[in-house]
Design a protein around this nucleic acid. Structure first.
Length: 646
DNA sequence: TGCTCACTAAACAGAT
DNA sequence: TATCTGTTTAGTGAGC
């Protein structure tokens, strides 16, 4: 009955595309040189210990040998930033990459043989024990080792030549601060298939420029890549740099197949859907596929703008994938933590103060057939060392997240630890725990976060799935609820425009809803403050998370996380409004202005939206810069982190 | 106890 | 025809 809908989006993204970290050992020249020095011992004798030593030293080298010499995202970015790259140049670059990969493959095979022989020799010598060494075998081993090292050196030179040639062609600039770049490990470099994909994306608007001869031979780099039945996804390749450095060329998601699928469905194009061009920031209406193609060729030709957009998109994808990897890892750690905790004997098995949103319900038990660790014996074990308050999340709550009945209940009247909140914040993003906000609040926030304060239903759906893991499941249920709320509440106004129907928020109506809930109840003031405290560290957690992930391009202002920050701010705003209806003396600060107001100037349209505002084609540049993922700078900057509210 | 709010579920109709 | 979108109704639980 429950209809599954996978997350159409893509989560939020962050993290560092460059990976100096894990791959630094890939091309350790030191190891190489040392290995060579060992091989040139005057005596020319190699004992078992020597062989073992050589093998040990070769470990990083071997990894390097398995690693295709590819272009890092930084280098690619440099190339793209110069914006002087013609498709032909890019093609030449790809060809060189391909040639280099082939060479490396050959070398890799050679290296494997060498390794096997060395292993064999080692075993033989070990079996021989104290028997006198055979000089002939040692000689052979030494010779093979020397040959191999020469191959390695040759490979190094090739790589240097390749990079030098790139420099000469102006395709790559080596910064003075990067003396070791040519020999630098390239752990998270773009595999040729990705380069090819990028090339296709860049040149997709120039089909005529593609020379047929080159089209299939040089660009089909994917054919050079090993294909296995258990091919990891492209995502995993990016997320896991070792996927392509484990001694085998990593299988890749071949663009060729994509193009084939497009041929199978001639009117299916990733940049075209629902009669609208889906080029980032375009959304031009195209009546049919032909007009779309025409539009694509005319408007999104290979120029500076398109290249820049392509570059941005590339980084968006990369960072989303990296962030997804990190979040998955985090989720795994959290689950492990929960599992360990929950299996420990518990002194006080009484249910703790749970957030009202994590109550049990029949729907919840239906809703979460997930693979989270289940510990029926201790269903209320907290995620953290026992702290009171709504932020305590139990393993039960992870399984049985129930409906939210009240956002501001007495259960909130408990001191909240910001650490708990931070944990739960991450939790909402990663685990399927229901956020403690009403649908109406969430919908409103989604709409207000949009650049034009209006969203289509589908965009609201996407926001939900993007921001909360909970909403990546049971789509039929919550989507129905979203629609129900949109229709039911007067504060949501449906507006027809050229794009179709969009939903906006009538703030006046929304404000009207709130006093009913909490007016005249002093005890709720505390609840509000607690809830406020809930929201504030939310931002702190967000900032910490963003800082932790060191998002290079989008920073905290443009990726998905800040939307949660905005959500927190909106919650504050909502609370803020509620506070306005109560005695301001109850507040702990800001006589004329509530603390929430002081903290978060809210940008809300005071007037109903004018549908005409949104008519007409949008400027590419404008919309690109104001897409939902790029327009959080203002709101985010306006939100100082205030942890004093605890 | 009654009212209100929020949620879920479902039916239905129109559009795509 | 299937799916999406939007509206409406009914039932339930919780808080006040």
């Amino acid at each position: 009955m429950m209809q599954e809908s996978g997350p159409e989006t893509k989560s939020n993204g962050s993290a560092i595309p460059n990976g100096a970290g894990s791959g630094n050992h890939l091309l350790e020249c030191g190891s190489l040189r040392e290995g060579r020095a060992n091989g040139e011992t005057p005596s020319g004798e190699i004992g078992a210990a020597d062989l073992a030593h050589i093998q040990q030293q070769q470990v990083p080298v071997s990894v390097a040998m398995m690693t295709p010499q590819v272009i890092t995202p930084q280098q690619m970015q440099q190339i793209l930033q110069q914006q002087v790259l013609t498709p032909q140049q890019l093609q030449v670059l790809l060809q060189q990459q391909q040639a280099l990969m082939l060479q490396q493959q050959q070398l890799q095979e050679f290296y494997k043989k060498q390794q096997e022989q060395l292993q064999l020799q080692l075993l033989q010598q070990q079996h021989a024990g104290k028997q006198p060494k055979e000089p002939q075998q040692q000689q052979v081993a030494a010779t093979q080792q020397l040959a191999f090292q020469q191959q390695l050196l040759q490979m190094q030179q090739l790589q240097q030549q390749h990079l030098l040639s790139l420099q000469r062609q102006g395709l790559l600039t080596i910064q003075p601060g990067q003396p070791g770049l040519p020999l630098q490990p390239i752990a998270q470099g773009m595999i040729p298939a990705e380069l090819q994909q990028l090339w296709k994306e860049v040149t997709s608007s120039h089909p005529a420029e593609e020379t047929p001869s080159n089209n299939h031979s040089s660009l089909d780099l994917s054919s050079t890549c090993v294909t296995t039945s258990s091919a990891p996804s492209k995502t995993s390749l990016i997320m896991n740099p070792h996927a392509s450095t484990n001694g085998q060329l990593a299988p890749v998601h071949t663009p060729k197949r994509e193009s084939l699928s497009h041929e199978d469905h001639p009117h299916s194009h990733p940049l075209y859907g629902h009669g609208v061009c889906k080029w980032p920031g375009c959304e031009a209406v195209c009546e049919d596929f032909q007009s779309f193609l025409k539009h694509l060729n005319n408007e999104h030709a290979l120029d500076d703008r398109s290249t820049a957009q392509c570059r941005v998109q590339m980084q968006v994808v990369q960072q989303l994938e990296l962030q997804l990897a990190k979040d998955k890892e985090r989720l795994q750690a959290m689950m492990t933590h929960l599992h360990v905790k929950s299996t420990e004997p518990k002194a006080t098995p009484q249910p703790l103060n749970l957030v009202s949103s994590v109550t049990l319900s029949k729907t919840a038990s239906e809703a979460s057939p997930q693979s989270l660790p289940h510990t029926p014996t201790t269903p209320t074990t907290p995620i953290t060392p026992v702290t009171q308050g709504p932020s305590v999340i139990t393993t039960t709550s992870m399984h049985n997240v129930g409906p939210i009945r009240r956002r501001y209940s007495d259960k909130y009247n408990v001191p909240i630890s910001s650490a708990d909140i931070a944990q739960n914040q991450e939790f909402y993003k990663n685990a399927e725990v229901r956020p403690p906000f009403t649908y109406a609040s969430l919908i409103r926030q989604a709409i207000l976060e949009s650049p034009e304060k209006q969203l289509t239903l589908n965009e609201i759906y996407n926001w939900f799935t993007r921001m909360f893991a909970y909403f990546r499941r049971n789509a039929a249920t919550w989507k129905n609820a979203v629609r129900h709320n949109l229709s039911l509440h007067k504060c949501f106004v449906r507006v027809e425009n050229v794009k179709g129907a969009v939903w906006t928020v009538d703030e006046v109506e929304f404000q009207k809803r709130r006093p009913q809930k909490i007016s005249g109840n002093p005890s709720l003031i505390k609840n509000i403050q607690s809830s406020h405290a809930y929201c504030t560290p939310l931002n702190a957690a967000l900032q910490a998370s963003m800082a932790e992930n060191s998002i290079p391009l989008y920073t905290t202002a443009s990726m998905g996380n800040p939307t949660l920050g905005n959500l927190a701010s909106a919650m504050r705003e909502e609370l803020n409004g509620a506070m306005e209806h109560t005695n301001s003396n109850e507040s702990d600060s800001s006589p004329g202005r509530s603390p929430m107001q002081a903290m978060h100037p809210v940008h809300v349209k005071e007037e109903p939206l004018d549908p005409d505002e949104n008519e007409g084609p949008l400027s590419l540049v404008t919309t690109a810069n104001h897409s939902p993922d790029f327009d959080h700078d203002r709101d985010y900057e306006d939100e100082p982190v205030n942890e004093d509210m605890e």
